[in-house]
Amino acid sequence: MQAYETLRIEQRGAIGIVTLHRPERLNAWTPATGKELVHAIRALDADSSVRVVVLAGAGRAFCSGADLDFFRTQREKGEMEGGVTRSEEFPLLMRNLSKPSIAALHGYALGVGATMALLCDLRIASQETKIGFLFARLGVMAELGSTYILPRLVGMARASELLFTGKMYSAAQCEAWGLINRIVPEGQALEHAVQLGEEIAECAPLSLQFTRHALYQGLENSFPGQLRVESLALQYLYSTSDHAEALEAIRQQRPPQFRGR
């Protein structure tokens, strides 16, 4: 696998793990982080041996937000790149992945660390995690599509509170509001995310891909339109080798061997 300056890439079976790796800076985000994430996640998405992508952080935090020292220096030089990211490439890549993604949160998920986690389909947090959308306290605003995702995830009122106060919230509060899926003991977020990924990876890859895309289409589609999406997807999936394999595995009382075709 390619070496990166700000990331570490690992594969455990069918699980591709992308770890933010600037532990001395609590994995604070720079433009280089964004560029490397796009490259690494695109490569994992194209790898048929990877069926689930997990995003994690090294050291004491998932991500403490943007590297303020870096951006302060850039501002003084007149070289600001338009905020934390230069483009919409990373959030669009995450939205259009062909496989599920899981964020494994621990320590702090602040600012872009919080909005980055929103781009994943599922979020596992260790019990000590603090999550905060600190943007309003820094004179900026949330990005990476978070003003689209957050109200749909927790409702407009709670999204407004999270964004307007700029406070840090506990993992327990975020779980109660539906921002994260589950809380696990301290130090076990990655382990539990991989375990969940392994359960997901037992399912047929094409079924996961079509289901994931249908769920996101459903956020915008009409009910009749979504029925049509499901009908067309099922028409295709019924014809796949994986569906035939599932039926044969049931007949033979054995686990199916899905190939993604």
Rank of each mutant, 00 (worst) to 15 (best):
G34S: 08
G34W: 01
G34A: 06
G34I: 09
G34H: 05
G34L: 02
K35E: 13
K35A: 13
K35Y: 14
E36Q: 08
E36F: 11
E36P: 00
L37M: 07
V38N: 11
V38F: 15
H39P: 11
H39Y: 12
H39F: 12
A40N: 05
A40Y: 10
A40F: 12
I41L: 05
I41Q: 03
I41C: 07
R42Y: 11
R42P: 01
A43D: 03
A43C: 09
L44F: 00
D45K: 02
D45N: 02
D45H: 01
D45R: 02
D45E: 00
A46V: 10
A46W: 01
A46T: 06
D47L: 00
D47P: 00
D47K: 00
S48Y: 02
S48C: 03
S48N: 08
S49G: 08
S49F: 02
S49R: 04
V50Q: 00
V50T: 02
R51T: 02
R51Y: 08
V52T: 03
V52Q: 02
V53I: 13
V54M: 05
V54F: 00
L55F: 04
L55D: 04
A56E: 12
G57T: 05
G57R: 14
G57Q: 15
A58W: 04
A58R: 11
A58V: 06
G59W: 01
R60D: 10
R60L: 13
R60S: 09
R60H: 07
R60M: 10
R60A: 10
R60C: 11
A61N: 11
A61L: 14
F62V: 12
F62Y: 09
F62C: 13
C63L: 15
C63A: 12
C63H: 11
S64A: 14
S64E: 12
G65A: 08
D67I: 05
L68T: 14
L68V: 15
D69C: 10
D69T: 15
F70D: 06
F70G: 05
F70S: 06
F71H: 08
F71V: 04
F71W: 07
R72W: 10
R72F: 13
T73Y: 11
T73V: 15
T73R: 11
T73F: 07
Q74A: 14
Q74C: 13
Q74L: 03
Q74N: 07
R75M: 08
E76D: 14
E76L: 14
E76V: 15
K77H: 14
K77W: 12
K77V: 14
K77G: 12
G78K: 11
G78I: 01
G78D: 09
E79P: 04
E79I: 15
E79V: 13
E79N: 12
M80Q: 06
G82C: 00
G83W: 03
G83C: 05
G83Y: 05
T85R: 02
T85S: 11
R86A: 09
R86K: 12
R86C: 10
S87F: 06
S87P: 01
S87Y: 06
S87V: 06
E88K: 14
E88V: 01
E88A: 11
E88L: 13
E88Q: 14
E89M: 13
E89G: 14
F90K: 10
F90P: 02
F90W: 13
F90N: 06
P91I: 11
P91D: 08
P91R: 04
L92P: 04
L93I: 07
M94L: 07
M94P: 00
R95Q: 09
